[in-house]
Design a protein around this nucleic acid. Structure first.
Lengths: 334, 334
DNA sequence: CTGAAAGCGCTTACAG
DNA sequence: CTGAAAGCGCTTACAG
C-alpha cells in the first residue's frame, strides 16, 4: 500500500453499534472487567475482537492525563554499558503495560534538559541514567512528573544505584594481594556522580590496606579517553590502573599494547561495567559488574509505583561483583 | 516531589487568556508561522514562552490523526549489529521532529507481529529490521500504516538494504588470492532474507573464480551458534569460514582457540556487520561492514516521505565494504 | 486577520 | 447494569 487509502481503525463507536449498546458501555466492558453484565461484556469483547478494535492511546490519554509511556534518558544509546539496563527497563515496562521511549543526552547537561522537556509532555514519568543535571533542574522536572535517577543520588529524589562497594572491596583485596603498592584511578567525567562515588570507595579501601592511590583526570569516558590516559598512568608510576569504565580500560589496554607495555606483567588494568566485548579483548579484561538488568527493572518499578501502580516492594539489594580475567595479575618488579 | 501535587502543564487556553485572544488564534500563532498579524504572533510566542507552554502531543494527535511518532522494530535491542542503525534512525527522527520508539521481536515472527500491532495505534509508521514475517502479514500491516523494511526486500513494499556485493566481491578476491579452495558459509536463521542474499552472492562470486563453496546450517545467529558451527566447518574441510554475522564469527574464533586451531593459519574467519568489538578480538576479525547509520536514516526518511513529509530524494547508494583485519590470511597447507 | 464551533476517541461522574 | 453528557487539549473548516 505505498501511500493512500489506509483502513481507518475501528473505534468504540463501531463496536457499540455492532453490539447495540452505548459507547460508554463499550469503554467499561473493555477496561473494567466485571463491572458489566457478563453477557454484555462477552458480546462487547467478541465484537471488539471481530472488528480488530485497538484502543487509541492518544484518545485515552486526553481524559485520563496518562499516556502509559515512560521515557528513559541515557547519555548514549549505543554505549554497551546501557544494554542490559535498557533491556531490563523494556521488559519491566512491557510487563506493566507501559511503552518506553529511549532518548539521548549526548553527555551534555543542556541537551539532557532539553531532551527531557521535549519528551516530557508525552510521558507519565522519566528515568534518567547518570544525570549530569544540577539539582535545581532535577527538582524542576520533578515538579511536573515523577523522575527516577539511576547511578546517581540526590537527596529527596528516588534513585536506584547498584552499590559499588562489594566489587571494589574484592578488587582492592586482589591488587593488595598481588604486591601492588600504587593504584591509579582514571576518572570519568567531572560531573559524574558515579565516578566520584567509585573514587571515594577505592580511596577508602586502599587506605584501609595501606595502599597508595591517585585519581587522574581524563578527557572523555571512551576508548580514546582511555588511550590518552595511559601517559598519566605511566607518569604516576602506578602498577595497576582502574578506569572509570570498560571503554576506557580497553583504551588503556590498546595503548599499552601499542607502547609495548605488558599487561598484566607491567601494568594491571581494570574497568567497570563488564560490557559486551570485555571478555573478547586480549588479555580479557577484569571488570566490576553491576546487575544492570535488575537496575533497569527497578527504576521502572519505582516510577510506576509513583504513578500509583503496584507498590515497589523491597527487593534484593543491588550489588556489584568483581569479574577477574587476565588483565590483572601479580606485579612484576622492574 | 515524590508523589502528589504536580504542576499541571499550561494549555493554549492559558496562553489565550494571557494574551487576550482566542485559543484558535494561539494554535495558529504557534503552528502556522506567518498566518497571523506579526504583532499578535509575537505576543503569543512570548506568552507561551513565559508560561512554559508545551504542546500536548496527545491532544494534537486526536484531531490530526498524527502522533509524529515512528516505531523501529528489531529482533534484539542489545545486539551490537543495530547500534548504528538505531543511532541513525534516532538522529533522523529528531531532525524531522519525530519521536521514535524502539521495540523488539525476539527473533520470532509471532512476537514481531504482536509487537507491531501493539505499538501500531500510537505511531504514524513503522520500520521493521530483518523482518521474519510472511508477506501476507506485512501487507496487512501496510494496509493500516506506512511500513518500511530494512535488510529485506518484498515486492511492493518500500525497503532499504545495503548492497552486500562490493564487500563480498572483495572478500572472495582476497580468499582466492590467498590459496583458499573451499569456503564454508555458516548461514543465519532459515527465515532470514539477508542470510539467503549473502549466500547467493558468495556462491556467485565463488563460482566465478572457480572456488568451491558450501552453505552450512547453524543453530542460532549468536556466539553460541558460531561456536557450534565450528564442527561442521571442520568436517567440510574448508580453509575459510564466512559467518552470517560477527557474533557467529567471534564464536567460531573462540571455539577455534579452544580447539587449538590456529586462525588464520589453519582457518580464516570472516563475519558480517563489523560490530563493536570486532576489532577487540584476537586475532582482530575481518568483517564486511554496511553503512548502518545511513541505512537507519534512510529508512526513517522513507517512512516520513510516505507520511507526506519531505520527499525522499535519491541518495548515494548504500554499499558494503570489506574491512580486512587479522583473522584472514594465506592458507597454509597442512 | 481572528473567533465560535464542531469534532478527534476516549473516560467518568451523574442519573436512572 | 447501562446511557446521556461533559470534558480532556488541540485543530480546522467556516464565517465574518
Amino acid at each position: 500500500m505505498p501511500s493512500g487509502n489506509r483502513k481507518p481503525a475501528a473505534t468504540i463507536y463501531d463496536v457499540a453499534r455492532h453490539v447495540g449498546v452505548s459507547p460508554s458501555t463499550v469503554s467499561r466492558g473493555l477496561n473494567k472487567p466485571g463491572r458489566l453484565n457478563p453477557a454484555t461484556e462477552a458480546k462487547i469483547r467478541k465484537a471488539a475482537e471481530e472488528l480488530g478494535y485497538r484502543i487509541n492511546p492518544m484518545a485515552r490519554a486526553l481524559p485520563t492525563g496518562r499516556t502509559r509511556t515512560l521515557a528513559l534518558v541515557v547519555s548514549d544509546l549505543t554505549n554497551p554499558v546501557y544494554f542490559e539496563l535498557l533491556r531490563g527497563a523494556e521488559l519491566k515496562c512491557a510487563e506493566l503495560g507501559y511503552t518506553i521511549v529511549f532518548a539521548e543526552s549526548r553527555e551534555s547537561a543542556e541537551v539532557e534538559f532539553e531532551t527531557i522537556k521535549r519528551v516530557s509532555p508525552s510521558v507519565d514519568g522519566v528515568v534518567v541514567v547518570s544525570s549530569r543535571l544540577g539539582e535545581a533542574e532535577l527538582f524542576t522536572i520533578a515538579e511536573h512528573q515523577p523522575i527516577v535517577l539511576v547511578s546517581r543520588e540526590v537527596a529527596g529524589l528516588p534513585s536506584v544505584v547498584a552499590d559499588p562497594t562489594p566489587g571494589i572491596v574484592d578488587l582492592v583485596d586482589l591488587l593488595a594481594g598481588s604486591e601492588h603498592r600504587l593504584i591509579a584511578y582514571a576518572a570519568g567525567p567531572w560531573a559524574s556522580w558515579m565516578s566520584t562515588r567509585r573514587w571515594e570507595i577505592l580511596y577508602r579501601e586502599a587506605q584501609k590496606r595501606g595502599l597508595s592511590i591517585v585519581e587522574l583526570p581524563s578527557s572523555e569516558p571512551t576508548l580514546l579517553g582511555g588511550k590518552a590516559a595511559l601517559e598519566r598512568v605511566r607518569a604516576s608510576g602506578a602498577t595497576a590502573a582502574v578506569a572509570f569504565n570498560d571503554l576506557m580500560a580497553i583504551g588503556l589496554l590498546q595503548a599499552s599494547r601499542e607502547e609495548g607495555i605488558l599487561v598484566p606483567e607491567q601494568l594491571s588494568i581494570v574497568g567497570f561495567d563488564d560490557i559486551f566485548g570485555a571478555d573478547l579483548t586480549t588479555p580479557a579484561l577484569t571488570s566490576i559488574r553491576a546487575p544492570n538488568r535488575r537496575v533497569g527493572e527497578e527504576a521502572v518499578r519505582l516510577v510506576v509505583s509513583e504513578l500509583g501502580g503496584p507498590e515497589a516492594s523491597a527487593t534484593e539489594p543491588l550489588l556489584t561483583e568483581l569479574v577477574v580475567r587476565s588483565s590483572t595479575g601479580r606485579r612484576r618488579p622492574a
